[in-house]
Simulated scan of single mutants.
Amino acid sequence: MNDLAITVSDVAGDVSRIGAVLGAAGVGLEGGGVWAGQAHYLVAEGAVAVAALEAAGINATTAPALVVPLRADVPGEMGRMMSALQAAGIHVEAQYSDHDNRKVFVVDDIERARTVLR
């Protein structure tokens, strides 16, 4: 899976355009959102998404994303996960949820993060 990152300034306008471009390219969004002027979306085909957006004049980047189950029924689980990453010295660029109750992490060391979060 891939994290797709796009800077936005007009959330409704920019996201509607992003959605239209990605939809026309056959790229589905499996999770994500917008905060602090940055959109992050979980996509299966990062290169296809970036190519479609750039062809439409929208700058985008993609990075590998770590997707792990989130035990949402366990209070404090998100804090436990983030504490484990911090204690291991793993830098978290972004974190959000997907549509299947999983946590998505964009980190500087995906394999170490996978081990830490087991």
Rank of each mutant, 00 (worst) to 15 (best):
Q38W: 13
L22M: 09
E111C: 00
P69K: 05
H91D: 06
A24I: 07
A52D: 12
A63N: 11
G19A: 09
G57Y: 04
P69G: 04
T7C: 10
E30A: 08
G57A: 05
Y41G: 10
N101K: 12
A39K: 02
A20S: 15
H40T: 02
T61G: 13
G13T: 00
Q95V: 12
P64R: 08
A65R: 01
I18G: 01
A94F: 08
L117T: 13
G46K: 02
D98E: 06
I18L: 08
G37I: 00
P75L: 09
L66E: 09
T7P: 00
I90R: 04
R114D: 10
Q38I: 11
E93L: 10
S16Y: 00
A20D: 14
L70K: 06
V8T: 09
L66G: 06
G46F: 02
V11D: 06
E30P: 02
V43K: 02
A94I: 00
D10C: 02
A47E: 15
M1R: 05
L85F: 01
L29H: 10
T61D: 14
E54C: 10
G31D: 11
L22S: 06
V43Y: 04
G76V: 00
P64H: 04
V43F: 03
D14G: 01
Y41E: 08
L85R: 05
G33L: 12
S83Q: 13
G79I: 05
G79A: 06
L4N: 10
M1P: 08
A51G: 08
V15E: 00
E111W: 14
A12R: 09
A72P: 04
N2H: 14
S97Y: 02
H40Y: 14
I90C: 01
R112K: 06
A60Q: 12
Y96L: 11
H99M: 07
A63M: 03
V11F: 14
D73Q: 15
G76H: 05
T115K: 15
A44V: 04
G31V: 11
I110N: 02
P69R: 07
M78E: 10
L66F: 03
Q38A: 13
P69E: 11
G33D: 04
D10T: 00
R80Y: 00
V67C: 08
R112M: 05
H99W: 05
G89M: 01
R102S: 09
Y41D: 05
L53V: 11
S9A: 14
V43H: 04
V106D: 01
L4T: 12
V106H: 01
A5K: 14
